[in-house]
């Protein structure tokens, strides 16, 4: 237990530094998200909605749908012709009463899985989640087995006795 505390004390500066870094990046990301929302509000000015729920759904979809022509931009952020067309279509579908899944499927039918920023979990993509988990497990096993061997060496009293005996004999 004491040894564990000592290890933690040693790592404390690193822990604090990484904690700070994490906090900073989270706040930057949050700020970014606020900025994005503001931009999207500008985008919704073009469109009229019957209800706030429809407006919210439109905003959500335009954040989640990816512009096929652009480099890593959602359709809310892009002014490309195709992004404008997709926004217009999303607005039209939402006005007609389509729910979120119906709109996403409409776009997937035309532009493939590429168009949605949340990839589905299937036989191929499952490995993206399994492989890192496997590596963590492997690392845990390796670390655990290493600890055991060092401990064994410490406790091996017979070796100690023999070593002491050998030292005495030498004297």
């Amino acid at each position: 237990m004491q040894r564990l505390i000592r290890i933690y004390m040693k790592a404390l500066p690193t822990l604090i530094a990484s904690g700070l870094l994490f906090a900073i990046s989270v706040s930057i990301a949050a700020q970014e998200a606020v900025n994005q929302d503001n931009e999207s509000d500008v985008a919704t000015e073009k469109y009229e909605f019957e209800s706030n729920a429809q407006r919210a759904l439109f905003l959500e979809l335009s954040q989640e749908l990816r512009c096929p022509k652009c480099q890593n931009q959602n359709i809310a952020d892009s002014n490309a012709m195709i992004a404008e067309d997709m926004k217009r279509k999303v607005h039209q579908l939402v006005q007609q009463g389509s729910d979120k899944n119906q709109v996403i499927n409409f776009m997937k039918q035309r532009y493939g899985e590429f168009v949605h920023y949340k990839p589905p979990v299937n036989q191929i993509t499952i490995w993206l989640y399994l492989i890192p988990a496997f590596f963590i497990l492997l690392a845990a096993v390796v670390i655990a087995s290493k600890k055991k061997t060092t401990l064994n060496k410490e406790i091996d009293e017979e070796t100690l006795k023999r070593a002491e005996q050998a030292l005495k004999d030498n004297e």
Binding site: M81, D85, R110, Y111, G112
Partner: peptide
Amino acid sequence: QRDYSLDLGVTG
């Protein structure tokens, strides 16, 4: 209205 282009999966 470029609706048919959208149906065809045209990006530009």
